[in-house]
């Protein structure tokens, strides 16, 4: 709108800058002094004179349309109805619009900038929601397992092997890493059961010690077995125990 006016005024200034005076004079809204001044002006300003005449023709054409249009229309809007009663009737019958219809009307009637802003806000909201969902999905799941040995897989394997050794002494050593993992729970179940028995007093501490010793022994045996099967490569092999110790050598007489 402003550009339109600026363009009009640029064109106008090339001929004459008294557009507002012309309009005021055309509609007889100029004061007496202003009117006399403008009349003097148009005597020597041909463009203003031409434009005044052209605008007069436009007004005449518009007036003709107005007379014809409004003259043919007999009744006003309410046709002498009581507007209060009409308004009450309108209030009673007020159809409910759906949310979709309301949104559609909003987008239909609102100006372009408002539509663009709403669309941009909706897009930003969707993007943020997507990022938030993606962020929550990426977070690692923390599973709390009431199992102290779980933190050390080597120890788990060892315990599993020990447990299996206790239960089935003649079975060969477990080579698959998944199998001992299953047996961890068996061993731990036994431990839990033992703990319960201690608490209940059905098993004495001596008995408990007795049950622990074979476990320690069997742990040693299992270590050897793991070494034989290359599970513990840095453990000293059992045949090294047969070598004479430094103390034994010291006790022996010099030969």
């Amino acid at each position: 709108m402003k550009e339109m006016w600026d363009k009009t005024m640029r064109e106008r200034k090339e001929i004459c800058a008294r557009a507002e005076d012309l309009i005021a004079y055309l509609y007889s809204e100029a004061s007496e002094t202003e009117a006399r001044d403008f009349e003097k002006h148009i005597e020597r300003c041909a463009p203003c004179r031409t434009e005044l005449a052209a605008f007069g023709d436009v007004r005449e054409a518009v007036g003709e349309w107005r007379e014809q249009a409004l003259g043919s229309i007999a009744s006003p809007a309410f046709e002498n109805k009581d507007v209060t009663a009409f308004a009450s009737a309108q209030e009673i019958y007020k159809p409910k619009r759906s949310a979709l219809a309301a949104i559609r009307e909003f987008f239909t009637l609102s100006p372009l900038w408002m539509r663009a802003a709403t669309a941009a806000i909706a897009l930003i909201f969707c993007a943020l929601a997507f990022i938030a969902i993606a962020h929550f999905k990426e977070q690692p799941k923390v599973v709390v397992i009431n199992e102290p040995n779980k933190a050390n897989p080597v120890q788990e394997n060892r315990n599993a092997t020990v447990a299996s050794k206790d239960e089935q002494p003649n079975t060969p050593a477990i080579k698959e890493p998944t199998v001992p993992q299953q047996k961890v729970f068996v061993a731990n179940n036994d431990k839990a059961q033992t703990t319960r028995q201690v608490k209940n007093g059905t098993i004495s501490h001596q008995q408990l010690a007795g049950t622990r010793k074979p476990a320690l022994r069997s742990n040693l045996n299992a270590s050897e077995e793991l070494v034989e099967n290359d599970y513990l490569p840095f453990t000293a092999p059992s045949h090294e125990e047969k070598l004479p110790s430094l103390a034994d050598l010291a006790d022996e007489p010099n030969q």
Binding site: M4, W5, T8, M9, A19, E20, L22, I23, A24, Y27, A54, F55, D57, V58, R59, A61, V62
Partner: peptide, 15 residues
């Protein structure tokens, strides 16, 4: 006033 002036000019050209 300026809007009315612009409107009359446009009407004149369109007519």
């Amino acid at each position: 006033k300026s809007r009315l002036y612009t409107a009359l000019r446009q009407l004149q050209m369109r007519l």
